[in-house]
């Protein structure tokens, strides 16, 4: 077995922040729902669309972007490292 500590540290640097973004934004969303439903009901600028809907749609976007970023980073940093070890 070759030394993979460098590979593991790259992977950690990618996974931990992205995991944090997901956990933080999702639990923020859930907490707002449980504690501040009125705030989420307020209207966004002068429209009928509420903060809750904007937050929700934004969260869907964040979730998708996180998966996209992870694959982008994997191809750029992780895969070359893995290739070095497997070849």
């Amino acid at each position: 077995m070759k030394d993979i500590s460098h590979l593991i540290s790259i992977k950690k640097k990618m996974v931990v922040p992205l995991l944090f973004i997901i956990m933080f934004s999702y639990f923020l969303f859930i907490t707002c729902i449980a504690y501040f439903p009125e705030f989420l009901g307020q209207q966004f600028f002068n429209s009928t669309i509420s903060y809750g809907i904007v937050f929700g749609f934004l969260l869907i976007l964040i979730i998708f972007i996180v998966t996209l970023v992870y694959v982008f980073l994997s191809n750029k940093y992780l895969e070359p490292e893995i290739k070095k070890i497997t070849s």
Binding site: V15, L18, L19, I22, Y26, F29, I30, I33, L40, S50, G52, I53, G56, L59, I60, I63, V66, T67, Y70
Partner: peptide, 21 residues
């Protein structure tokens, strides 16, 4: 209305977890 979105997002948020972990 809005409550439906809470469920959808809950179902979706499992995916980055699957991917990252």
């Amino acid at each position: 209305g809005f409550d439906g979105l809470i469920y959808s997002i809950g179902f979706l948020v499992g995916w980055p977890i699957v991917l990252l972990l």
